[in-house]
Nucleic acid binder design. Structure first.
Lengths: 218, 218, 218, 218
DNA sequence: AATGAATGAGCATTCATTCAT
DNA sequence: TATGAATGAATGCTCATTCAT
C-alpha cells in the first residue's frame, strides 16, 4: 500500500476527478444499466475512493444526469463529425450508410444504443432527464435534415429509434436487409406526397427550442 | 384460531391468487417502473399477504416476467379487437386512426406505453424477457400487415415505437399533427418503390417464429 | 457458528423480540445517550441481528419512542409501588425519603435520571416525544399530591427535576444535605401562604388531561 | 491569483474569525441542537470557509465547548445586568419578575433555554463540559442570593431549571399562573423554618469554587 | 399449502477529520 | 497561515429471500 502513495496522491485535479467518475458512471450504465449504477460500482470502475463519487455529485441523480449528458455530448460530436464528412448524400446513399451505422452499432457501439434506451426509460420517472432525451432526438433530426425534408427526417429518426431499441431488446437484432428496407421505405421521396407543409412550423419540439445543443441544464 | 382455518382457506383458488398478484405487479410497473417493483409493494397493491408474492413465483424475475407477459397478452387482445372492428382501411384512414390511437395513449393508456418501454430496457439485461419484446413488436407488425405490405408495416411499427418512447420520455409529447405527418409519410404507398419483395422472406423474426402468440415461456 | 443454530432459531416470539430490542435501546440511551443510539448498537446490545431492529420498528424515531415509553412505564410502576408502600407521610418524612430516593439515584439508578434528561432534550426536537415528557412530569406530581397540596407538589417536582439534572450534569452531584435542605424548604407547609387556591384549576397540564397514565400514543 | 493574496489575507483578525465561528456554533445549537451541529453547518452559518472551523478548533468537541462557554458568558452578563438594575426586591416582587423572565423566555429567548438544556445533557457524556454546567447553576444561585437566603436561592434555581426544561420539552409550556405560584411557594419566607444555617458551608459546589467565572478551561 | 417473521447484504448519504497546497 | 478537496467509516434504511410454523 505504501508504494501506491504516488498514485493515490494525485490529488487536486478536481475536474479530472469529476471526469473520471462521470466516464465510469457512463460505462456502468452501458454495462449494467441505471439499475446497476451504485456509488460503489462507479468508484470501483473509476478507481477512485467511494467518497469521491459522493463528494463531487450532490446525489445519485446528479451522477446519472452527468453520465447521460456526457453520452449526449459524445453523440452530438459523433453526428457532427459524421455529417461533416458526408456533405451530400442522395436518399439511397443515406439509406445505405444509415443502415450501416445502425448495424455497426449492434456490435461495435452497442453501449451507445443501450445508454440511449436507458435514458429514455429513466426520463419517464426523472423529469430532469427529459431535456437530455429531447436533445438525443433533436440531434438526430437535425443531422438528417441536412439530407432530407424535416418530416422525412423525423420519420426516419423515430424509426431508427425503434430499430435501435429492437436491436438491444429483441432476441435477435434486425437483419441488415430489414433495416435497409425500412429506411429506404421512409427515406425515398414519395411523389404521392407534397414536399412542403409537411409539418406546421410550431409542431417541432417547442420544449427545447430555446436551448442550444450543448447547453448545461441543471 | 384453529377453527378459523376453514374460513381462511380456500378463499381463493390458487390461480386467482396468481392472477391478482400478476395484475398488481403490472400496475406497479406502470406506476413506478421495474425499479419500483418490490415484493412488499406488489403484496400491498394486490391485497394479498407478502408470502403470496414469493410463494407463487420463484423470484422477482419471474414476477416481472409474468407481469410483462400479461401486458403483452392484453396488448394482443386489444390489437385483435382493434383489427376485427376495422376490417378494411385505406392508408390514409390507417394513418389517422393510428395517430389517434397513439395520441390517446399519451393521456389515457400511458401505462401501456410505459410498460412497453420498461419491457424493452429490462430485456436488455434479462434475456428471458426478449421473447416478450419480440412479441410486442411482432403483434404490431401482424396487425398492420392487414392493411399494408409487410415492409411498410415494419417501418410504421418501428416509427410508432419511437414515437411512443418519445411520448413518455420527452419534455413534451409529439403533437398530433407531427404524429399524423410521420405516419402518413410512412404509410402512404410510394410509387417510386416496388410493392413486392420488400423483404427477403427469411428476414422476419426467426427467433420467435416457432412460438405461438400466448405460449408460456418459463 | 453451526452450533449456535439452536439459539438462532428461537424465532417466532415476536413480542419477546420487540421487548428485547426495546430494552436494549433503553440501555443504550442510558449508557450512551440518544446520540449514541444506532441500529447496530442496539442489535449488538440485544444480541439480535441488525435486521431485527429495523424490522420491528418503522424507523429510528419509533425505536427511540418505544424505549423512552418503556422508561416512563417503569417509572410509573416504580412510583405506584413507592406510594403504595408509604400511604401516609408527613412533610418532613417525605423530605427525607425523597432526598434519599434522589440520592440513591445518583448511584444506583443513574440510568433513570440520564434517560429522563435525554427524553426532555429529545422532546425539544421531536414533538412526538412531548406526551412522554408530560407524563414524566405528571407522574411525579400525582405521586406527591398524595402527601401535599398540588402547588407544593408541582414546586417539589420541578425542583427535583432540576436536582436530578444537576446530579447527572454537574461536576459533582449535590450533597445529601443540600438536597434535603432544598426539599424541606419546599415541602414544609408555609403558614404565610394560604393552603387553597394555590393554582387556578385549569392551569394544570391541559395537554395531558385526557390521557390515562399508561395509554399508548402513536 | 497570486496578486490577490494581499486582499484575501488579513480580512479578519484570527480572534474575530474564532468569534464568528463560535457565535455561529451557538446559533446552530439553539436551532438544531448539538446533534445538528456539523462543521459544514457552522461554516455556512458563519460565512467562513469550512477549513476555518477545523483550523481554529482541535475538534468538534472544542467547538461545542466554545459555543457553550459563550452561552454561559452571555447568561452571566445578562444576570449581572438584571441584578444591577434591581438592587432591592421583596420576595413577592422577585416572584413576579422571575416568573416574567421565565415566561418571556418561553417565547422570546427560547434559544437560551434550549441551549442550557443541550448543555446539561451534553455534560453527561462530556466531562469537560461539566464546569460549564456548574457555572450555569451557580450563576443563578449567586444572583438570587442577592435577594433571598442561599437555600431558598438554590431551591428556586432548581425549580426554575425544572420549569425551563418543561417549557421547552412539554406539550405546552406551564402557564404564567403556575410558574408564579411555584416560585411564590418557594420564595416566600417560611416562618416555620429557621433562616440561618440552612446549608453547611462546605456543601456548595466545591468543584467550581476555585474557578473564576469567565476563566478559560481547555 | 400458505404465511409473514426474520435475516443480512447492500444501498445512498453524511461527516469529522486529514493534509496537500 | 489558511483552505477546501479528499477520504472512508459509519449511519438509517430497503429488500429479496429464506424458512419455521
Amino acid at each position: 500500500m505504501a508504494d501506491q502513495r504516488g498514485a493515490k496522491r494525485r490529488r487536486y485535479a478536481p475536474e479530472q476527478r469529476v471526469e473520471e467518475v462521470t466516464a465510469a458512471a457512463e460505462r456502468i450504465i452501458a454495462a449494467r444499466g441505471i439499475e446497476g449504477l451504485t456509488h460503489r460500482a462507479v468508484a470501483e470502475e473509476a478507481g477512485v475512493p467511494l467518497g469521491a463519487t459522493t463528494y463531487h455529485f450532490a446525489g445519485k441523480g446528479d451522477l446519472i444526469q452527468a453520465a447521460l449528458r456526457r453520452s449526449v455530448e459524445r453523440y452530438a460530436a459523433y453526428l457532427d463529425d459524421w455529417v461533416a464528412q458526408r456533405p451530400h448524400l442522395t436518399p439511397e446513399q443515406l439509406t445505405v450508410l444509415l443502415a450501416d451505422s445502425l448495424m455497426g452499432g449492434y456490435a461495435a457501439s452497442r453501449g451507445q444504443q443501450v445508454t440511449e434506451a436507458e435514458l429514455y426509460v429513466a426520463a419517464m420517472r426523472r423529469p430532469e432527464l427529459r431535456p437530455l432525451a429531447d436533445q438525443y432526438i433533436e440531434l438526430g433530426v437535425d443531422a438528417l435534415c441536412r439530407y432530407v425534408d424535416p418530416l422525412t427526417a423525423r420519420a426516419a429518426v423515430m424509426a431508427a429509434n425503434g430499430l435501435s431499441l429492437r436491436a438491444v431488446a429483441a432476441s435477435e437484432p434486425p437483419s441488415r436487409a430489414e433495416v435497409e428496407g425500412i429506411l429506404r421505405r421512409i427515406l425515398t421521396p414519395n411523389p404521392a406526397l407534397p414536399d412542403t407543409l409537411h409539418l406546421p412550423p410550431d409542431a417541432t419540439e417547442p420544449a427545447t427550442r430555446n436551448q442550444s445543443r450543448h447547453q448545461r441544464q441543471n
